[in-house]
């Protein structure tokens, strides 16, 4: 809603995290967001609440306390079994109306990015996508949201001083999850706010889980990734051999995916997957900022390129100056078979 006075603003309290639950399991992004919510709530002298929507989700609610939730709102309803974003948006709006959170955070996943924009429009709230940094302005208590903008060539800081709640999405693996504290406890608030006509809306008829989908990429300890300089599908065959040798997964830049050399599910970067892996090996990737924001929080970055002056080579921890078509085969040769 639009804020007309300071007292309007004071009516909004607490930092909410909308949980992502798949097949009954709370996803890591939810823990990461609870970690990001804590300093915001501390700065505002308020609480961190988690909101869990779905069918059969109540059992997982108490465990969210370990990651920092002071309260967990649970809407457990069989009618929320499939991902019906229209219904979930109405449920969230009802909860927002009732409890008036000051800040609402949600994972920038395919589901979060479908649900939250709908909620923001319905709640007349400001929403900032894919934030990489969140902070509180000490002067007026507003949320300061930083995100890559204009293709990631700049970082924009965005505020929303005249509307509440202030809403942000954050990509998975951008924030670090706190170490869980099993001794923490949270208040559990059960809410029964699913609209009665829920089953009349969109019908989810089937759900397919693909073990080979992008999660593989996000979970791999080592990612061997290729860019335009891989020159074609054959170049990616070479990278697949290296990835197989080190027990890793294959990633790609947008340029390589757009060229059709490798499927979109392998794309790393702003419009693909964000990864935070132990070792990221960038092969002939120049390092457009959209790509960098998707992998720069990896522990160790190795770049291989003929050109030593690319942004990727400048950013890497280890920059190998050389032709990928010579260095990668040499690497495959040097690494003992696992």
């Amino acid at each position: 809603m639009q804020i007309r006075s300071e007292s309007d603003k004071a009516g909004f309290r607490n930092v909410w995290v909308v949980a992502e639950v798949l097949s009954g399991k709370v996803q890591p992004v939810t823990h990461e967001l609870l970690g990001a919510a804590r300093p915001l709530a501390d700065a505002r002298g308020s609480e961190v609440w988690a909101v869990v929507l779905g069918s059969g989700v109540a059992d997982g609610a108490p465990a969210l306390a370990a990651y920092g939730a002071d309260a967990v709102v649970v809407v457990d309803d069989a009618r929320l079994a499939g991902f019906t974003d229209e219904v979930e948006a109405r449920v969230l709006c009802r909860l927002i109306d009732e409890h008036r959170p000051e800040i609402v955070l949600c994972g920038a996943t395919t589901r979060g990015r479908a649900l939250i924009p709908r909620v923001a429009v319905m709640a007349r709230a400001g929403l900032t996508a894919d934030c990489t940094e969140l902070g509180i302005d000490p002067e007026n208590g507003d949320l300061l949201q930083t995100r890559p903008a204009f293709g990631g060539n700049i970082l924009a800081t965005i505020r929303c001083s005249s509307h509440r709640p202030q809403m942000s999405t954050v990509r998975p693996r951008v924030m670090k999850a706190p170490a869980p504290d099993p001794s923490r406890r949270a208040r559990i608030l059960r809410a029964d706010v699913t609209p009665s006509d829920a089953s009349l809306l969109k019908r989810v008829v089937e759900v397919f889980h693909d073990a080979n989908a992008a999660f593989n990429l996000a979970d791999a300890p080592i990612i061997v990734s290729g860019g335009r300089g891989m020159k074609g599908p054959d170049g990616f065959e070479l990278l697949k051999r290296l990835a197989a040798r080190v027990g890793g997964a294959v990633g790609a830049s947008r340029a390589a995916v757009d060229a059709g050399w490798i499927p979109y599910t392998h794309q790393v970067g702003q419009t693909g997957q964000t990864v935070q892996t132990q070792v990221y090996v960038a092969c002939a990737i120049s390092g457009q900022i959209q790509h960098l924001v998707g992998m720069q929080s990896s522990d160790l970055i190795v770049a291989i390129d003929k050109n030593p002056d690319t942004p990727m080579m400048k950013m890497a921890d280890i920059a190998v100056v050389g032709d990928v078509f010579e260095v990668v085969p040499a690497l495959i040769d040097e690494i003992p078979k696992l």
């Binding site: 903008a149 970082l155 924009a156 505020r159 929303c160 001083s161 280890i318 920059a319």
Partner: peptide, 19 residues
């Protein structure tokens, strides 16, 4: 509802590069 309050170039990654 949202306002861009400032823009800045993205920060460089800290640390040195071994070439």
């Amino acid at each position: 509802p949202t306002r861009v309050v400032r823009t800045q170039p993205p920060p460089p990654r800290s640390g040195t590069t071994t070439v």
